[in-house]
């Protein structure tokens, strides 16, 4: 009996500790709601220089003075493919407003990527990150720690401002999937109107 009682005390203590842990975790998560969904905001976008499928070399530094939209993709990524036609539409609408759009394809052969470019009629630069080094640089620290770093940004969209700062970064969230890129569009509209809010 005594033994049981002690066990019950132990259970109560354990429950209290667990509850405290849950509350602490909840408060911690509530205190940083954007850590997972909108990471790296305000940080300088890692510079890169990558070959495009068109044979040209594209450098982020060369896009200084433009707003830049980057989408990390692979051809086997269903969510990336769902966004591809909407990226083309976005490019057609915003390209003339000084917005550069890039797909950064991660660790694939160009022949495969060429097929995707043809299928969706992509007319903006599609860049080849064949070793995943650029994608790795864009993997937010602490996000999806069990995943290979170059896979973390897959299906993500970023908006980089004219000073090279990240102003929008949406990691994949299929429960609130934004194939039509409304978040990217809203951010671009605000930036193009001169709204400095992050």
């Amino acid at each position: 009996m005594e033994y049981r009682s002690k066990r019950a005390d132990f259970r109560r203590t354990l429950k209290a500790l667990l509850l405290a842990g849950i509350i602490t975790s909840t408060v911690s998560l509530a205190g940083s709601p954007n850590r997972e969904n909108q990471p790296m905001i305000g940080e300088s976008a890692p510079l890169f220089s990558l070959p495009g499928v068109d044979g040209k070399t594209y450098s982020l530094a060369d896009a200084a003075g433009k707003y830049v939209v980057i989408h990390f993709a692979t051809t086997w990524c269903p969510f990336c493919n769902a966004e591809a036609p909407h990226l083309q539409k976005l490019y057609e609408e915003y390209g003339k407003k000084g917005v550069a759009v890039y797909i950064v394809d991660v660790k694939e052969e160009q022949a495969q990527v060429d097929k995707l470019v043809d299928k969706f009629g992509l007319t903006f630069p599609v860049l080849m990150d064949t070793d995943g080094a650029v994608s790795t640089q864009y993997a937010p620290e602490g996000v999806q720690p069990d995943l290979e770093r170059d896979a973390v940004p897959l299906a993500s969209n970023l908006v980089i401002d004219r000073e090279g700062k990240i102003r929008f970064y949406s990691l994949l969230n299929t429960m609130a999937f934004d194939a039509k890129l409304t978040g990217v569009r809203e951010t671009l509209d605000r930036l193009l109107e001169g709204d400095p809010r992050p």
Binding site: T74, E148, A151, A155, L172, N173, T174
Partner: peptide
């Protein structure tokens, strides 16, 4: 196979 959950797609 190629798997996805609601937050990520894993390589084949």
């Amino acid at each position: 196979y190629q798997a996805c959950d609601d937050r990520r797609c894993l390589p084949p």
